[in-house]
């Protein structure tokens, strides 16, 4: 009984310490955003790398997501005789929730783990130390550029996923009935307002920031030893996904408070 209590307390302590460390790390990284030198070359390189790596994955997933969502919701809408509401409904669910969250989860799996493994390897092979000794702050050169790149790119990838998802939805509708692309677009966009797009976009900026940050943190704090590279990649994915859902939860409540729905 005593050991159980100690175990629970110990894991709670570890959890809170981890949260606190991530927050301190976040503070340090944000400070690096505003500290010279600004590594625009590395930022571009990372941005290109991230976008290039995830775009095909996100395109395929986005398309399937829109297609399946439409096919699944269509029978219910037909029962209500509300088929014409289907594009609007799909557009709202893609733009507000599914697009951002699915894209963010994919990026957590792809980018966050990549950054975690890369930085973990750099840590293990003392590349980060070497950088530190050479007078280049790895937090500035390696971490801040990656976090900035994901912060900028994830919202763009989400827009892309939304667009492809809507096209997938159109394709699904076109399989079952005859609907012109123009009609579909006008039905879809009629139902969308700024209250749908703006909170979703702000949310994705945070998704992007934490995808980069968690990956970096896990890599940056990797232990010495080859197996810790894999571990940091793995826990980067898990932690980033968890953080995405927490942000999503807070975001939905905040937008509810601000916009009233």
């Amino acid at each position: 009984m005593e050991t159980l209590k100690e175990n629970i307390l110990g894991s709670l302590e570890r959890f809170f310490t981890e949260v606190g460390s991530i927050l301190l790390f976040t503070g340090n990284v944000i400070r690096q955003f505003f500290t010279a030198p600004f590594e625009h070359k590395e930022l571009l390189k990372q941005g290109y790398y991230i976008g290039n790596k995830t775009l095909p994955l996100i395109a395929i997933t986005g398309f399937i997501m829109g297609l399946v969502l439409t096919l699944q919701s269509r029978p219910v809408m037909v029962d209500f005789g509300a088929e014409s509401l289907l594009p609007g409904m799909i557009a709202i669910s893609i733009v507000r929730e599914i697009g951002p969250v699915i894209t963010a989860l994919l990026c957590a799996g792809k980018i966050s783990s990549g950054i975690g493994a890369e930085l973990g390897a750099m840590k293990v092979t003392e590349q980060l130390d070497a950088m530190e000794v050479s007078g280049a702050k790895p937090l500035n050169y390696v971490v801040a550029t990656r976090v900035m790149a994901t912060t900028i790119l994830v919202p763009i990838l989400v827009f892309f996923a939304d667009a492809v998802g809507l096209f997938g939805s159109f394709a699904a509708l076109n399989m079952r009935e005859d609907i012109s692309f123009r009609l579909f677009l006008s039905l879809a966009f009629d139902s969308l307002g700024f209250a749908d797009v703006i909170p979703a976009t702000i949310k994705t900026i945070f998704f992007g920031f934490f995808i980069g940050l968690i990956g970096s943190y896990k890599g940056y704090t990797a232990d010495r030893g080859t197996e810790s590279v894999g571990l940091s990649a793995n826990s980067a994915v898990v932690t980033a996904s968890l953080v995405i859902f927490i942000i999503d939860l807070v975001a939905v409540q905040l937008s509810e408070l601000i916009y009233g729905f």
């Binding site: 390897a121 750099m122 092979t125 003392e126 590349q127 130390d129 070497a130 950088m131 000794v133 050479s134 007078g135």
Partner: peptide, 19 residues
């Protein structure tokens, strides 16, 4: 510290070249 680090070279175990 950066000034000092410039004057002190450090050769890491594996060379620590940036991959």
């Amino acid at each position: 510290l950066n000034e000092i680090r410039k004057k002190v070279g450090y050769l890491f175990q594996g060379g620590a070249l940036y991959d």
